[in-house]
C-alpha cells in the first residue's frame, strides 16, 4: 500500500512475490490492485440491491464511512467538552479546532464570498475542508495494513471474510473519482443556490452571460457558458482524485523496483540492495511530499468552491 513504512510494504509485496514466483512479478497489475476499489463481486459487507443499485459496501465506501464517523465524533466530542468546561477561553484541542474554523472563514470564505454571505457559506466550506483533509490524511496512515500484518501472524482470517478483506489494506476514499465527483456535485449545486439566493432564480441564470452585447454573440456565448458550468466541477473532481491516486502510484512504482531487481538478477540480495539504496529513501521522500499534497488539495478544493460561489454572488460586467 501507500504507507511510509517500506518494511511493511516489503512484507506485503513479499507475499505477492511469493505467490507470483512462477509467473513473474507484474508491477502494473500489483499497483492497480492496490489503488483500485475492491471488486463489487466480493464486497466487504453484502447489502441488498434496491432500485437496480447494488448497495454492497466496498473498500472505498467503508473508508468513506469511517472518515465521516471519525470527523463527526471528534469534532462533536471536542466542542461538547469545551462547552461543558464552561471556560470562555478555549484550550487544547478546541484551540486547534478554532484555528481551523478561523482559517477557513477568514482566509478562504471571507475574501471570496464577501461579508454579507460569509456566515451562510462557512459551514459548507468547513465541512469540505475538514472532510477532505481527514479522508486524504487517513489514506496516508497505514492503519489497516498494520492490523493486517498483525492478523497475518495472530488470527489468520479467511481471505473472503469481512476481517480478511478489511485488513488487506486501507485506501484513500478521495482517490476514487466517484467520491470526488459527489463532492463536486455539491459544489455545482451550491453555486446555483448561492446565485439564486443572492439574485433570484431568473436573474442568476441571466448573470451567467454579460448583457448588452449584440445578439449573434449570445448564440456563441450561451453554449460556451453552459459547458463552462460543467467544466468547473469536473476540474475539481479530476484534480483531487488524480492527485491522491498519483502519489500512491509513484510510491508503489518505486517500491516495486525491489521485486523487479530481485527477479532480474535472480537473487534477493540485489532487490534488497536496491530497496535500501534507492526505493526506501525515495518512497520516504515522496511520502513526506504526500503530506503537503494532502493539505494543499483539501485547501485548493475548498478555495475553488469558495471562488466559484463568490463568482455567482458578485457579478461584475
Amino acid at each position: 500500500m501507500f504507507q511510509p513504512h517500506g518494511a511493511e510494504t516489503a512484507a506485503h509485496g513479499g507475499e505477492h512475490a511469493a505467490e507470483a514466483a512462477h509467473e513473474g512479478f507484474n508491477a502494473g497489475e500489483t499497483i492497480i490492485e492496490h489503488v483500485s476499489n475492491s471488486p463489487i463481486d466480493h464486497p466487504l459487507i453484502h447489502l441488498p440491491t434496491l432500485v437496480g443499485i447494488d448497495f454492497s459496501v466496498t473498500k472505498h465506501v467503508l473508508m468513506l464511512w469511517l472518515v465521516a464517523a471519525f470527523v463527526f465524533a471528534t469534532v462533536t466530542w471536542i466542542v461538547r467538552r469545551h462547552l461543558a468546561a464552561g471556560r470562555p477561553v478555549p484550550s487544547g484541542a478546541m484551540n486547534g479546532l478554532e484555528f481551523v474554523v478561523e482559517f477557513v472563514r477568514d482566509s478562504i470564505v471571507l475574501p471570496n464570498v464577501g461579508k454579507k454571505w460569509v456566515h451562510a457559506w462557512t459551514p459548507l466550506m468547513l465541512t469540505f475542508f475538514v472532510f477532505i483533509l481527514c479522508a486524504n490524511a487517513i489514506g496516508l496512515i497505514p492503519v489497516f495494513d498494520v492490523l493486517g500484518l498483525l492478523n497475518h501472524w495472530v488470527i489468520h482470517p479467511d481471505h473472503e471474510s469481512f476481517l480478511g478483506s478489511v485488513t488487506h489494506g486501507g485506501t484513500t476514499a478521495t482517490a476514487n473519482f466517484n467520491v470526488t465527483a459527489a463532492l463536486a456535485t455539491i459544489t455545482f449545486g451550491s453555486i446555483i443556490v448561492a446565485g439564486t439566493r443572492a439574485h433570484g432564480f431568473i436573474q442568476h441564470w441571466k448573470n451567467l452571460v454579460p448583457h448588452g452585447l449584440a445578439w449573434p454573440i449570445y448564440i456563441l456565448l450561451i453554449p460556451i457558458e453552459i459547458m463552462g458550468l460543467f467544466v468547473k466541477p469536473f476540474a475539481l473532481t479530476m484534480r483531487l482524485a488524480a492527485n491522491m491516486t498519483g502519489g500512491h502510484i509513484a510510491i508503489l512504482a518505486i517500491l516495486s523496483f525491489v521485486f523487479l531487481f530481485t527477479e532480474m538478477f535472480g537473487q534477493a540480495a540485489a532487490g534488497i540492495g536496491v530497496g535500501l539504496a534507492v526505493s526506501v529513501p525515495l518512497a520516504v521522500g515522496i511520502s513526506a511530499l504526500e503530506i503537503i499534497v494532502v493539505l494543499v488539495q483539501a485547501y485548493v478544493f475548498t478555495l475553488l468552491t469558495a471562488v466559484f460561489i463568490g463568482m455567482a454572488i458578485h457579478v461584475h460586467h
Binding site: 467544466v231 468547473k232 476540474a235 479530476m238 484534480r239 478555495l303 475553488l304 463568482m311
Partner: peptide, 10 residues
C-alpha cells in the same frame, strides 16, 4: 487557480 484548472478541465 480557478481559471487555470478550468482551462485544463475543459
Amino acid at each position: 487557480a480557478a481559471a487555470s484548472y478550468a482551462l485544463v478541465g475543459a
